[in-house]
Write a protein that binds this DNA or RNA. Structure first.
Lengths: 389, 389
DNA sequence: TTGTAAGCGTTATCAA
DNA sequence: TTGATAACGCTTACAA
């Protein structure tokens, strides 16, 4: 490590040891719960629930107040055209005064439409940096179309299935990436409208909306190869992740295509530590690659950090690329060159695909799948290799 | 900047310029959508919907198949004890064969319990690094208690209100931090059970479950002051954010308490760029602080980056602290000393508080609020000042 | 234009 | 232990 380079926090120094002494803080793991778990309980007055036990008003109450029949209330508030303006106004006023809100349960039972869509994701998907970028636009697109979102974290197929086949949702958006899930098949078996989001391969018979991971990976590999790199390393996730496999295929389709590119492959986790470990292994070796293509941004940030820690100039000596364009990738200190999915578009298409199945009779219409191109995001971590071989 | 230090990506160099030439990539903003937006549409066969239009089976169908009355089906499947084992088995078998799932709409209409809870958050809350750490445990806690989660992104009070007063949820967890929201008040007015999550001040009459931001901030300020720092800077968010205000109060309560600590305050955004900007201003000045306390981790990471970029030794020359303990704070390159909320505990308590309001008659019981202590997470970015003044 | 009647699928009450 | 009956709140068809 060159003098003046960023100091690795793991390296101990006297002052830091002294600090630890004061605080009594072991280095790893950090001393969570240092201060104990005492919870302060405050008792407060709550909103007054009227002692006469006010019942929530129904359309019947409004009807009585407005001096009309109950179905007229329904028609008036639903904006049915064949209600006289005078009646409509009278009903509206009565409803407002009573604080009447049409009860969803009655509406659903009768109309058999819930206007609610389930979004299924993995148990901890929302904790990853990327998944919320998909779930939030999905939620927005649904809201814009007048649908509510029920969030279901996949934890056993049976649990998911019972929540989506009980008529509580009109359809399902499956974003969970788990490979062996039986959910899609069972949705089909139960005739529940659904769309698989962010999975490339249209699994037999399932409408799908996904980014083209293979294409995106091929694009960035093309970029790197075009810059003249001939010693390239791939840092990939485990084989069970379809996403990582697709990206690997994209990388290889270009790098193996007759160009004299030597490719090394490292397989590990998909988190920051995996990137750090991979970079340690790659940059510590005698024969360093000049470019490292990572299966996602988090890995790439780990690689980036380790490289800089070792004084390796990125992109001068080393090109590093990611995948997903998570928010951090755009942070100034990283400025990571990566691949971006247009998650807003993906969400919109997925919702469109799903809602198109909800029409009165869609048996004739051919269900579609949509594959969205991924885009290169060219920032500051790519350059030609130091000495073109 | 010392030789060999991490090179700021913003500084141009010939090689990088040449790269830009090849790619045609402007520096800022990155060229998203470089490759166009062409979507590939694939038409596929969908799951076969039986032409005879199979109706979804109801308890009536099961009753007929099992040779019992319809209410018996309900009782048998609900595990009602006064059903003979033989009947129960017959019903169970018939239900299984028909693929019967009790329809939620009927159940809700009759029982007036949805077993569904709404989680309200801000429009983009899930995109922040911290909020999912709260929402996910909330969702888990609800699922564990047998409740489903409806996600509502706050976008206008009226929209939220109509979704929670229509009987579609049994209660509401409000995590949105927006200050002037009328939602809590209206929930109370409508008698909708609810809990405010992660807001410290128990707003008049609302059950609340929150971390003690003030206390956490005071703890970390005590730590820093105890280390001997006398030149401290606070990097805070805007005044409209209650969270930031609470933390500021905590910082000040300690730093202003008669100790000879000189405190500077910078107010700005709550993102990474805000931290970078603050650090630039603070570290560029003639009189540098020896400690920078930030209103959240993202800001702190920005400060940390800028400090290292300038070759400032953290924690040797400068102590930097955050707040929230987002995942990145634990990443090896940062190892940020910060304050942690036990979001799992917070979620569990919030759910407990909410569900306790759903009992048959809770008018007598006093609703509670819970304030959870925040914990210091002592990692690698704090130390005594270089020369104790 | 509005009222009457029926029914969505379930659970609860009562009687047998 | 089980069956008949009613009711939840709403929308729709039909009649007035």
């Amino acid at each position: 490590m060159k003098a003046g380079a960023v100091k690795p926090p793991a390296k101990p120094c006297p002052r830091r040891d002294w600090t630890r002494l004061i605080i009594g803080a072991p280095r790893v793991p950090p001393p969570l719960r240092l201060l104990g778990r005492r919870a302060t309980v405050i008792r407060i007055r709550m909103h007054a629930k009227g002692p006469p036990m006010t019942r929530v008003p129904t359309s019947k109450d409004v009807a009585k107040a407005a001096g009309v029949s109950q179905p007229t209330v329904s028609r008036a508030l639903a904006g049915h055209p064949q209600v006289s303006a005078a009646t409509r106004e009278r009903v509206r006023k009565a409803a407002l005064e009573l604080g009447y809100v049409p009860q969803e349960s009655g509406r659903v039972l009768r109309s058999r439409r819930t206007r609610r869509i389930a979004v299924v994701c993995g148990p901890d998907d929302l904790l990853s940096p990327f998944r919320p970028q998909l779930v939030v636009p999905l939620h927005q697109a649904l809201a814009a179309a007048g649908y509510r979102t029920t969030l279901i974290a996949e934890s056993g197929d049976a649990a998911v299935l019972s929540q989506v086949t009980d008529g509580s949702v009109d359809g399902v958006l499956v974003t969970a990436a788990r490979a062996g899930s039986a959910v899609p098949g069972q949705l089909a078996a139960h005739g529940v409208p659904h769309v698989l989001v962010d999975r490339l391969v249209p699994e037999a018979g399932h409408p799908t909306c996904a980014a083209d991971n293979r294409q995106g990976a091929a694009e960035i590999a093309t970029l790197v190869a075009g810059l003249g790199h001939r010693e390239v390393a791939l840092v990939l996730g485990p084989r069970r992740l379809r996403t990582s496999l697709d990206r690997e295929a994209g990388f290889r389709s270009v790098l193996a295509a007759g160009r004299a590119v030597r490719t090394r492959v490292l397989r590990g986790g998909v988190d920051h530590a995996a990137g750090v470990a991979a970079a340690r292994s790659l940059l510590g070796a005698a024969h360093r690659p000049t470019a490292i293509l990572c299966a996602n941004d988090t890995i790439a940030l780990g690689v980036l950090h380790e490289a800089r820690l070792r004084g390796v100039d990125v992109p001068g000596e080393l090109t590093v690329t990611g995948f997903d364009d998570i928010p951090m990738a755009g942070w100034e200190p990283y400025a990571l060159t990566t691949v971006r999915h247009d998650t807003g578009r993906m969400a919109a298409e997925a919702v469109r695909l799903l809602l198109s199945q909800l029409g009165p009779d869609v048996d004739g219409a051919a269900p579609e799948s949509v594959v969205l191109r991924a885009d290169l995001v060219l920032r500051q971590t790519h350059a030609p290799p130091p000495s073109p071989s």
